[in-house]
Every structure is written in C-alpha cells, then in structure tokens.
Nucleic acid binder design. Structure first.
Lengths: 156, 156
DNA sequence: TGCTCGTTCGCACGACGTGCAGATTGGCAG
DNA sequence: CTGCCAATCTGCACGTCGTGCGAACGAGCA
C-alpha cells in the first residue's frame, strides 16, 4: 500500500474525495502488519476519531482493496482481514492466539499438482497453521494466550 | 469417510444413537465429491426426508467432522463446505461457477518458506483459484455458469 | 414393554457484512 | 471568499451463516 500522501493524491486524481476518515484509515493501515479486521480497525480508529462509523471503515477498506492498495484475506478466522502488503506472499496463523504473519514462499511453481483436469489456475494461496513462539513457551495444555482481535501494530 | 454401515456400527459402539436423519446424511455424504454446504445438503436431504431440520444437518456434520470422518473446509466461498475425502489433499475452486475439485499436491515439503521465525507449522492448506473447463469454453465475458449451491454428486 | 438419555426441531440470537436514505462536507467554479 | 453539487458519512435495517437453548421425541437397552 502506498503512503497516505500518495493515496491522497491518487484519490483526488480519480475524483474521489479525501475525508478525515479516509486519511485516518490510510494512516492506520500504512505499514500495519497486524492484519486487522474491519472491526478491529474501527476500534483503533474510534480512539482517535470518536464517532467514526464502522460502515465507513468497511467502505474505505473495500475501496482500497478494489484499487489494489491492500488485499482482503479470508484466513478462516471468522472475519475478513486486511493486509497493506501487496507483495506476492502467504500467511501463517497461530492456532492458539490467532496472530498472523506474512511469509514468503519460493518454489511453489515447482509443485506437482494432480487432479486439476482442465482447470486454468489463476492464483494460489498457501495458508500455514501452527503455533507462534510466544504461545509455544506457555506450554501446550490449555488456552494460553487468548485470541486477539486487536488492530495493534500501527506503524505511522 | 467410512461407509454408512461402518459409521452405524461406530456410532453405536460409542454410545451414539443411529437415527434415520443421521443415516440419511451418512448416505448423502458417502462418496460425495461435490463439497456441499450444510444448506445444500439440507435441500437434498429434504427431498428424501421432508421435515428434517437444518439444525440437525449442521449437528450431524459437526459430529462427523469432530470424529474425523469428514473435513470441514473454509474456501472463502461464504459457507463452510464438507468433504468426506479425508486424504491429505487440497482444493481448486472455479471463480466463475464455484465448483470445487480435490487436487493432490506433491512436493509441498520442499517449499522454501521465509518469515516463519519461530512458528511451528502443523498444517498447510493450498487453495487454487481458477476457471474450470466448463466455464472456460463459455467465453470469458459475463457471468457464464452461475455459481451452484447444489449438493449434487451423491454417489450411494 | 418401559424407561432414559441422546436427538431432533424450531426459534432466538450473535457475528459479519451490505443496502439504503437522509444529513453532511470536500473540492471546484465563480 | 462563497455557493453548489456530487461524493461521502452515518445509523439502521436486513441478509447470510452458524450456534445456544429447551421442549418434545425416539433409539436402544433392561
């Protein structure tokens, strides 16, 4: 995803308006590696701008996604997650706490796939499930670190 | 997934009752390669057994899944899908009509993954997106074969 | 045949998103 | 600087998917 300043120009160039709400979301998502949900981002945004509507957060995220500025992910965690990293990459999810990390996979073109009979593959998503280092040290018995829904990791 | 007869024995051996509803779902899922949703299976089941409850379909599918007799899949198509094929395999989804096919991938252990830093990976899902042969011939302009929600493909 | 506890059913509810309509406001023309 | 108009924001209703709950039912054993 581009910088808030670049997005501002780009929006205006396309006849879209740059509202304070949009600028806030630009800032909250830029460099955000937390893979927040719309709801999580809404919580964070509400701290800065009380009164902002969840509907607006959904709307702006959808706009950014359709412009290719961020990717929306369905990682099977319930809600859609948004990722400003538009590089070709994949994800690993901690099955204990739900934390998500970007991973880069090489050699996937060399996979031998059987049963495609005629399908023209256009994209491949690889999802790793496992236990993050933080949860691993806590032992493996019970619920250790409860799943987080936060939108932490705001960088800028 | 085992045969309806085997499942019947297994359920009884575990103190679970074998009801007509469950037997029907055993039969509808056995060898079913359509990756139906609960709703789709409910439609099919209703034709045979009017009055069966959607709640019961959900319940029985969840039971079978927790017994390891079938896998529940979130392929990003909206609703959870159920697959009696418990072999280690992956899926390809047609982005036009939504049809799903099992695929077998070899060589995935040889993937070079960067960025895992400390995650202990327990499972890997690979999801291919593309266009099925049936939709490919119809041209690529508009909606060709509308997505299907059926539970066809009942084998036994 | 009767009993008992697992099942079934149907409805309410919760999570996640989207459609809609009225109020608001960004951004440009004058 | 002022005013206009379309784009946007907000809040609510609605739609989908799935689960919790409690009363009625029935599978399976004594």
């Amino acid at each position: 995803m581009r910088s808030p300043a670049e997005l501002t120009e780009m929006f205006r160039a396309n006849g879209l308006k740059v509202t304070p709400q949009r600028q806030l979301i630009f800032r909250l998502m830029h460099g955000n590696e937390a893979h927040p949900t719309a709801e999580g981002l809404f919580q964070t945004a509400s701290d800065v701008m009380p009164g902002i509507s969840l509907r607006t957060v959904y709307q702006t995220l959808a706009d950014l996604a359709s412009m290719g500025e961020l990717r929306s992910l369905d990682l099977g965690t319930g809600a859609t997650r948004f990722d400003p990293n538009t590089d070709d990459h994949h994800h690993v999810v901690c099955e204990r706490c739900g934390v998500i990390r970007d991973v880069y996979v090489s050699g996937s073109d060399a996979l031998h796939v059987e049963g495609l009979d005629g399908f023209a593959v256009e994209s491949t998503s690889i999802l790793f499930n496992g236990v993050c280092p933080r949860c691993a040290v806590g032992g493996s018995r019970a619920t250790t670190n409860p799943p987080t829904n936060n939108a932490q990791g705001v960088m800028s």
